[in-house]
């Protein structure tokens, strides 16, 4: 994690997810109306996860503490800033998911559930104004996509690091030897 260029990762993920300054402003501006509904999003999110057998096993005995963290993160989606610190925090979440051996699809699946919930709420708080709803849903999709990209980046790096540790432990090779081997083949 020490070698990660968070500025570069943030810029890339924002460009890829379409998280423009305009969308960032819209998210913050809609915060007052959306924030009171976020507890409902978190509750529905965990209710759905608990109803899926493969996700439920990862939540046993931890739901309340996870809900608190989740709500805090959801709130940050509508307060910003979507800066390097936020990027680093999302990166740490990806790492944490590898440490607790959460399957990779949980992040994308989870984001999908949250996206559905927030899209519904975006429609409700926009008072039937289609343009307003579309703009807010687009901004929500962008910030969730941005967050997911950063988490997946760290998930992949952490998974590879774990695989390498396992390989080195099995073969008895030192990390220095592995690096020299990789250097020799310019990998």
């Amino acid at each position: 994690m020490d070698n990660v260029d968070f500025d570069e990762l943030m810029d890339h993920a924002k460009r890829f997810s379409g998280l423009t300054p305009e969308r960032e402003s819209l998210l913050v501006a809609s915060g007052d109306t959306v924030r009171p509904r976020l507890q409902e999003v978190t509750d529905n999110f965990y209710a759905m996860l608990l109803s899926i057998p493969k996700t439920a096993v990862h939540l046993e005995g931890r739901v309340e503490s996870l809900k608190a963290t989740h709500l805090q993160w959801l709130t940050s989606l509508f307060t910003g800033p979507y800066d390097v610190e936020y990027t680093a925090a999302m990166y740490a979440v990806g790492d944490a998911h590898v440490r607790v051996k959460l399957p990779v699809e949980f992040m994308a699946g989870g984001m999908c559930l949250i996206q559905n919930e927030l899209a519904r709420i975006a429609g409700e708080v926009s008072g039937g104004d289609v343009d307003k709803t579309v703009s807010l849903v687009s901004a929500i999709n962008s910030v969730l996509g941005f967050s997911l990209m950063v988490m997946q980046e760290s998930y992949q790096s952490s998974s590879l690091a774990e695989e390498l540790d396992r390989f080195l432990a099995i073969t008895g090779m030192s990390r220095v030897l592995f690096n020299n081997l990789a250097d020799a083949y310019q990998i």
């Binding site: 099995i170 008895g172 090779m173 020299n180 081997l181 083949y185």
Partner: peptide
């Protein structure tokens, strides 16, 4: 022969040999 490759591959093989013998 590339010295870097000969070196790294040889040491890797011996390391693996150590572990296999064990």
């Amino acid at each position: 022969l590339d010295e870097d490759r000969v070196g790294a591959m040889g040491a890797a093989m011996l390391s693996l040999g150590d572990r296999t013998a064990q």
